[in-house]
Nucleic acid binder design. Structure first.
Length: 837
RNA sequence: GCCGGGUUGGCGGAAUGGCAGACGCUGCGGCCUCAAAAGCCGCUGUCCGAAAGGGCGUGUGGGUUCGAGUCCCACACCCGGCACCA
């Protein structure tokens, strides 16, 4: 049949019966064990309390196309942890599901003239099949899809609970708009002024949209990160911290002509209040429109139009000239009564702080740039010893001596300056210490079809009315093809039969809210649903959640460092406040795997450097691909496929497999009589491997197993021989340890060793502490810190004996010639360092 | 600019303050073979040396220490985040 099997591949490496080593057919092994495992169903969480529970969670996939290298890597790493826990005797919950709402399915459906569900569920089946083949230890009984009505019913239910608590609200304001996807975007989905998904330049629109009030939780989202320090990657915590963007300062009230109420500004430098020489309002804020003097209306409106046309890309371009327009009004500085002109400008943002600032050009670069552009005065109130900003054009932001600052004059540091002025403002009722956040509320409405409908009805008489719980889910109508085309309003708005209903409150004519929710809402609580995926009384069974959550380990890509993880943390806190759960952080530990790149660049169609996972698996087998990814380096580092050697991995697996055929002792042979040297290597390897897995150093764990394999090979060929029970012990240990990474090969070995499936539940080998003790250690002898000799000594050697032995060593004597020994440092039994001169 | 992470052979990467380079890839040599493939064995940081042996080596410069890849200070470069956020 196969006359050409010389290619490194999955076929038999050698023809049978020719005296060569027997062949390991990885493809046949995969086909052999899959049905056996499916029948055994070994990875179903028992949830019976018999064993300690562990929740292994991996970020659920989005069903576009088949699995790719990225999935392969994250799942391989994740599975090491899950399978290790099984071997350690835990009751593991390792669920899988699909984040199955979203735009790509909708766009595909338009092209194919079908309902997005068709494409979505077909892809899910393809991926599910691939995951099964890939041998991940998922508990398939907990499978969920966020686009199933029985799932999104509860997404809608949660939305309504949030709304009852004032955490979901509608407001009319400028929003980010993606002209390509024809929908609004959350702040988190705008990257450098472009759409995170499609890369189109984001523009602004004024729309009435639903928001989640994440800002109410800003401080807690920040504070609770303390609990995650050490178990979450530092960079994720940093990214969230940056995103939340807490800043401390003060609110200061300014009286403004043409307005009854004073205008509040936020500033981090209230101590420079005496240096405020003008006042700026965001051009697109309602306040600017309100206070603009009649004679300045024309230029103001022209300017505002210009600002509105700008995209974020324009705004962000650096070295940009400051623009603005005088509003014909003055504001009054609350500490010195000075009248300062009020300007509108676009460098002040409408949705940060109060949308208005006091401008202190001497000590803020942006204000200084503006002042120099429009010839506004600059007054220095902090003398930092640097040159006058008015002359240099460089604002000074550091500590210094206060001048021209009334009661602050003479103080020399910011901290006391700030507290002094805040006290004064509070006493005068003109301000107070305040904290401000960069974080904005989460815009959750989307003008697209393939998402959970927002369960709200708009009634002319009753206004906004929640769909009663017993009428949930609000299911999507069966739209397809052209009906889904983006038109700037949700496709649902045109589905008249669906949109027009009776008001649930008054029975009068009403319309459904035709927007759907951001798919990040779906993924903000799926990990809770997994605990009781078929529960019908609520989104989750509180008892089941109490048993499993928080997830012990979450594994996924760093691309979700802000979006998904921040939202999930927010949901968790809200559910906690609702009394539905008793913890405040959903994920106890987080592992961000690196990306798989190819030839230095991330894989993409346009670069033509994609590596096809299916082809790799066909060529090298599942186990070799998984092994390659796990062994490549630390899990959190990017790995370049071009640097890796799946052929080498396959070679190793074949070597290991042969090992299992070489064992000639019977199962249950008395290992106590086995070769001690090999046994020591085995027990050391098992001991180290456990620690390494727990420290998530999977690549090093693989290296330890390789060392054991090498030692075993040697023992068989030129040591104790294949019949020694220590060889069986070693090979069995290899099979169990390898089952975390290469389950098919491990299973095949296990069978060849005379055991019943499945090796996945064989249990982590017990370590005999006595075998970890070495009977001799290599002590190193240094002279002046340089290595001069090695000594084989007993671990119990005394300091004096070791020193004597070291000083007697010929090499040491030689290097001490003509020198006087000043000092000898002895760290028995490992080291002697002789200090001489 | 601010915050976080990093920099070790030809390559991916190992090293509780104590033998730098584990494990693997690549390369070279050998065994087996008519030959090759596969497999197995050995070598593979760099310089001097026939060898024994020795010098030098973890981005740069300082410091602490008997001893520093590891700790401290300064700097350079790379990666990631935030950034007209008051």
């Amino acid at each position: 049949m196969s006359e050409q099997t010389t290619e490194q591949g999955t076929g038999p490496a050698t023809e049978e019966g020719r005296g060569g080593p027997p062949a390991y057919d990885i493809a046949a092994t995969q086909d052999k064990w899959r049905p056996v495992w499916e029948k055994l169903d070994p990875f179903r969480a028992a949830d019976d309390g018999a064993r300690e529970r562990r929740y292994a969670l991996t970020m659920f996939p989005y069903p576009s196309g088949d699995l790719h290298m990225g999935h392969a890597e994250v799942m391989a790493l994740h599975d090491v942890i899950a399978r290790y826990w099984w071997q350690r005797g835990f009751d593991v919950m390792n669920p899988i599901g699909w984040d199955s709402f979203g735009l790509p399915a909708e766009n595909a459906a338009i092209k194919r003239d079908e309902n997005p569900a068709t494409y979505t569920y077909a892809n899910i089946e393809t991926q599910a099949e691939s995951f099964r083949r890939y041998g991940i230890s998922f508990d398939w009984s907990r499978r969920l899809h966020t686009s199933d009505p029985e799932y999104y019913r509860w997404t809608q239910w949660l939305f309504l609970r949030f709304r009852e608590r004032g955490l979901a609200y509608r407001k009319f304001s400028p929003v980010n708009w993606c002209p390509n996807d024809q929908t609004v975007l959350a702040n988190e989905q705008v990257v450098q002024g472009t759409c995170e998904r499609c890369g189109a330049e984001v523009t602004k629109r004024e729309l009435s949209q639903w928001y989640f009030k994440v800002t109410d939780y800003a401080q807690r989202l920040l504070d609770d990160m303390d609990m995650l320090r050490g178990t979450w990657p530092e960079r994720v915590l940093t990214m969230q911290r940056n995103w939340i963007g807490r800043s401390e300062g003060a609110h200061v009230e300014f009286e403004v002509e043409g307005r009854e109420e004073p205008v509040t500004v936020f500033t981090t430098r209230p101590d420079t209040l005496y240096g405020a020489t003008f006042f700026v309002v965001a051009a697109d804020a309602a306040l600017a429109d309100e206070i603009c003097a009649p004679e300045q209306r024309e230029p103001f409106e022209a300017y505002r139009e210009q600002v509105r046309r700008e995209t974020d890309i324009d705004r962000l371009s650096s070295e940009r000239e400051k623009t603005g327009v005088f509003l014909g009004r003055h504001a009054v500085n609350p500490v010195n009564g000075e009248r300062v002109p009020v300007w509108a400008a676009d460098y002040v943002l409408a949705d940060y702080g109060t949308g208005a600032i006091m401008a202190v050009p001497a000590h803020d670069q942006r204000d200084l740039d503006f002042a120099r552009t429009f010839g506004l005065p600059v007054r220095r109130v902090v003398d930092t010893g640097e040159d006058n900003p008015e002359e240099t054009g460089v604002a000074t932001g550091g500590d210094g001596r206060y001048v021209n600052s009334g009661e602050l004059d003479g103080l020399t540091d910011k901290t006391s300056g700030i507290s002094r002025i805040v006290e004064r403002l509070e006493a005068d009722g003109r301000g107070r210490g305040a904290v401000n956040f960069r974080l904005r509320d989460w815009l959750l409405s989307r003008q697209r079809f393939w998402g959970p409908p927002i369960p709200i009805v708009h009634c002319d008489r009753c206004g906004e009315v929640a769909v009663p719980d017993d009428q949930l889910p609000v299911e999507l109508p069966d739209l397809r093809g052209a009906d889904l085309k983006p038109k700037g309003v949700s496709p649902l708005a045109a589905a008249t039969d669906w949109v027009n209903i009776e008001c649930p409150r008054c029975g009068g004519p009403a319309k459904r809210d035709s927007d759907t929710m951001d798919t990040f809402v779906d993924s903000s609580w799926y990990f809770l649903r997994y605990c009781s995926p078929h529960y019908t009384e609520g989104p989750f069974d509180p008892e089941a959640v109490r048993r499993w959550m928080p997830a012990h380990q979450y594994v996924g890509g760093v691309e979700h460092a802000i979006l998904h993880l921040l939202y999930s943390r927010f949901f968790t806190k809200v559910l906690h406040d609702m009394g539905m759960i008793d913890f405040v952080e959903p994920f106890a530990a987080l592992l961000n795997q690196g990306q798989v790149i190819n030839r230095g660049k991330s894989m993409s169609k346009s670069l033509g450097n994609g590596v096809n996972l299916g082809e790799m698996i066909d060529q090298y087998g599942v186990d070799a691909v998984r092994l390659t990814l796990v062994f490549a380096g630390p899990p959190e580092d990017d790995i370049d496929w071009a640097d890796l050697s799946p052929g080498g991995s396959l070679k190793f697996l074949q070597r290991v497999w042969r090992l299992s055929g070489d064992v000639t002792s019977a199962t249950g042979a008395d290992v106590a009589t086995g070769d001690v040297a090999l046994r020591k290597v085995t027990h050391r390897a098992v001991h180290d491997a456990a620690e390494l897995v727990e420290g998530q150093r999977f690549n090093v764990m693989v290296a330890r197993v390789m060392e054991l394999v090498n030692a075993t090979r040697k023992a068989i060929d030129s040591g104790c021989g294949p019949a020694d029970p220590a060889v069986r012990e070693a090979v069995e240990a290899v099979a169990v340890m390898l089952s975390l990474v290469a389950p098919y090969t491990a299973e095949e070995m296990w069978e060849r060793l005379g055991h019943e499936p499945t090796v996945a539940k064989a249990g982590w080998p017990a370590v005999d502490q006595a075998l970890l003790v070495e009977e001799s250690v290599t002590a190193i002898v240094q002279v002046q810190g340089k290595l001069r000799a090695r000594l084989e000594v007993t671990p119990s050697i005394s300091a004096a004996d070791l020193e004597a032995k070291a000083l007697a060593d010929p090499a040491v004597v030689r290097s001490l010639e003509g020198k006087t020994v000043r000092k000898v440092i002895v760290r028995e039994p490992n080291l002697v360092n002789v200090v001489a001169s």
